[in-house]
Amino acid sequence: MKQLVIFLVVVFLFIGNQFSSAQNTGSALASIQLNPIALMDIEPNNSSVVLNVSPVTEAGTMNSTSMSNNIKWINFSSSLAPSTPNRTILVGVASGNLPAGVRVKIQTSPYSGTGNGSIGNQTNEITISSTYQTLINNIGAGFTGNGINNGYMIRYVLEISDFRLLDFNNSQTVSVSYILSEI
């Protein structure tokens, strides 16, 4: 009889322990993967820039150049992972050849606009070629603002490099490509 009493006490403690283990907390995980971002475009659009060399109309004068639609703006958005190098915008001739006797320069103005962050430094002037050259460097995490008057204004300028090579029956289409470097 004494053994039976002890057994009942043990069962009672067992039941009590079940109640005391009720769980009153729970959790969920919020996980956010922020990926590096590199996004660039040309504003107001990437329509063709037209550059002309006019023939001489008066003896003793030089040929003149004319340009239309030759101002564009570069906009970009960039983010970086820690300890990764800054980005660069490169420019070069992707296809086509310039007519003999001329060269095309890209003049880049300092940044202006409504952006924020580390948005780089421009190279003031580049003569374009099939070799890609740095137009803007030291781009970190930032954004330029959107549309014209935001970012880096670029101006295409046509120059005559050698009068003797000019051929006024010659017209060429050249495609210029901009690359925002990925990390």
């Binding site: 079940q18 769980q23 995980l29 919020a30 958005s77 952006g115 330029t144």
Partner: peptide
């Protein structure tokens, strides 16, 4: 273990360029 509070479901979010409306923004 008697469950009083049960929480189910996590939020996994991946942010990429699709969260930018246009370059420069």
């Amino acid at each position: 273990q008697a469950q009083k509070l049960t929480v189910t479901g996590n939020w996994n979010l991946s942010i990429n360029s699709s969260y930018i409306s246009d370059a420069g923004v």
